[in-house]
Design a protein around this nucleic acid. Sequence first.
DNA 1: GCCAACGTTGGC
DNA 2: GCCAACGTTGGC
Length: 154
Amino acid sequence: MNYWLMKSEPDSFSIDALKQAPKQTTAWDGVRNFQARNMLRDSMKRGDQAFFYHSSCDVPGIAGIVSIVKEGYPDKTAFDPKHHHYDADSKADAPRWFVVDVKLVRKFKRIITLDELRQHAAKALKDFVLLRRGNRLSVMPVTNKDWEFVLTLE
DNA sequence: GCCAACGTTGGC
DNA sequence: GCCAACGTTGGC
């Protein structure tokens, strides 16, 4: 089993929105970056877990944990001309963008803030991709070691 | 294949 | 709203 981190802007989709979704499950759509796409399509497996990260908001940080319940399949929002995430270059017979389905495992009692994570960037979390300068990936791998350390912060 | 221009991300 | 950092595009 592998670990991941997935970013979402809570204004568009928060961990509370996931909590209220049918079966507390959603397709993680709208990723439009090839590196992140490759992970969604090829690497993320059923049973893997991911941190749900809130970005571009008052308190950026990790809000909880989700699990992958369905492996990569085409992102339908890319096919819909009216959709915000439409991409004319993604064809039904040759899809360019992919999603996985995620299900809520649990919401943390509190947000583990980016600020707090940064305090460990020099030592315990020195390999954490999220903390690398200029990092912009919306889906990224997390090592077992970093996963476990972050959980101790809650 | 290079690289400038442009768009996006995301923290502040 | 600003801006650094980075990915993507497109001209050459």
